[in-house]
Design a binder for these strands. Structure first.
Length: 416
RNA sequence: GCGGCUCUGGUGAAGUGGUUAACACGUCGGAUUGUGGCUCCGAUAUGCGUGGGUUCGAUUCCCACGAGUCGCCCCA
């Protein structure tokens, strides 16, 4: 179908662009306050970058990437997320030089071959933030805070912030092993998906909507009992900072992340009314990623937020501002003799920075007046053969219906 | 990738196995000579997601595909 955009993609129409721009402005404003600088990375990267970064075995890499071979026989992938690219750019451009902590943000489209649903598109837009080069838990808190304040400042209520720690390469394997052992014994009770997860990612079983309610879940191993001292202290510190900043959070020991690179802090902000796709922002610490991609061992934290979902949430909350675009003047011309005169007036006004419009359809004056009223213009500038002959303009105030004839030169003063 | 539901004009929608597919909004035009928002009048789908099939005949029945939507999965 030539007249259908590919599945899972959407046009952002003029009537919607205002909301997008407002979102983007808010992002830039907030990032400036928090000291994050914008970075723009390519829309596609070498496939290997995502395989390494996100991790083979994850759904994103295994079944959701738009991967193709280019004409030079390179395997290329449309970015399914932007953290790996940012890290790559950080290393390639040596952004770490002369800088302790590098704080970056991005806005852009990401691509995932998923089954489309409300709030889940194949091309979607994310705003994300990355702080590279610091292991202090205060940075985790700063990142979470930025995400939280961002959503709050848009006017979203009913947000819930869930945090957890997923450990580090030292302690996570211990936890993982305990989980595998525990759930292997309960394998008969597990749902189909979870039996699969048992091998692949036993942490996910904790998150299961079906098995999560079953009795044996209460006695499942808890991450707290496995954490190493470093991870425990780190998590406690994050909580302390969040409390100090008055951010209400909920510790959810079952919260896990789907990408391999996460360590220690993991968080998610949900807007429940969105239904199945309720996660509006998510992120955490990824201390292992930079080394994985070939840099020095460098700690980092970040998050990403889904812009379509945020817009959906704002819509549900009826928090999208009504458009109030108004033009200053609408020119109504009568008779072909006046058309050139009208066109010149239109041009003069625009050169003086007035937003002016006229109807080029050669309609009746009545129709043009209708169009003027509908345009929301405050003034209709009526120019017919009389006005053209005398170099005047009839100005009609469309709100009061008052009307006067003024010399052409005075028009711009009269319509301010 | 799996399962359910849906698909009629610009929009919201009603409707039927059989010559003109309601209604409303919108849009366009008109209600005498150069003037809007109210009112009134008129026009506006040869077409019912696409392609097949059943039938004398299908928008109405069946199948496939497509798109949307909800849930699962995944995630932002």
């Amino acid at each position: 179908m030539l007249t259908n955009a590919p599945r899972g993609t959407k046009d952002i129409l003029p009537s919607q662009v205002e909301s997008w721009v407002r979102l983007e402005n808010k992002i830039r404003e907030l990032c400036e306050i928090y000291g994050y600088e914008e970075i723009r990375t390519p829309t596609f990267e070498h496939t290997e970058l995502f395989k390494r970064g996100i991790g083979e075995g994850t759904d994103v890499v295994d079944k959701e990437m738009y991967t193709f071979t280019d004409r030079g026989d390179r395997s290329i992938t449309l970015r399914p997320e932007n953290t790996a690219s940012v890290v790559r750019a950080y290393l390639q451009n040596k952004l770490y030089a002369n800088a302790g902590l590098v704080k970056l943000f991005y806005i852009g489209s990401m691509f995932r071959y998923d089954r489309p649903q409300a709030g889940r598109l194949r091309e979607f837009h994310q705003f994300g933030v990355e702080a590279l080069g610091e292991k202090n838990p205060a940075v985790d808190a700063e990142i979470i805070l930025l995400a939280w304040e961002f959503l709050k400042s848009l006017g979203l209520d009913d947000l819930t912030l869930k945090i957890n720690t997923v450990g580090c390469p030292e302690c996570r394997p211990i936890f993982r092993k305990k989980l595998t052992e525990y759930f292997t014994e309960e394998a008969d009770e597990l749902c189909e998906d979870c039996r699969r997860r048992l091998e692949k990612n036993p942490l996910r079983i904790l998150d299961c909507k079906i098995d999560g309610l079953k009795d044996f879940m209460d006695d499942a191993p808890k991450i707290e009992t496995c954490l190493c001292d470093d991870c425990r202290e780190h998590f406690n510190a994050v909580k302390k900072f969040l409390t100090a900043a008055d951010v209400p959070f909920e510790v959810n020991p079952r919260l896990v992340r789907g990408l391999d690179y996460y360590t220690k802090t993991a968080f998610e902000i949900q807007y429940a009314p969105l239904g199945a796709q309720s996660a509006v922002a998510g992120g955490g610490r990824y201390d292992g990623l930079i080394k994985e991609i070939g840099g020095d061992d460098t700690p980092a934290v970040g998050f990403a937020a889904g812009l379509e979902r945020i817009l959906l949430a704002l819509e549900l909350q009826k928090n999208l501002p009504a458009s109030n675009k108004k033009i200053a003047a609408f020119i109504v011309s009568g008779g072909s003799a006046a058309e050139v005169y009208a066109f010149k007036l239109l041009t003069d006004l625009r050169r003086k920075n007035f937003s002016a419009a006229m109807d080029f359809g050669k309609k009746s004056m009545k129709a043009q007046m209708k169009a003027a009223a509908k345009s929301g213009a405050k003034f209709a500038l009526i120019v017919g053969e009389d006005e053209a002959a005398n170099s005047t303009v009839t100005i009609k105030n469309l709100e009061t219906a008052a009307q006067e004839v003024v010399p052409l030169a005075q028009v711009s003063e009269k319509i301010i």
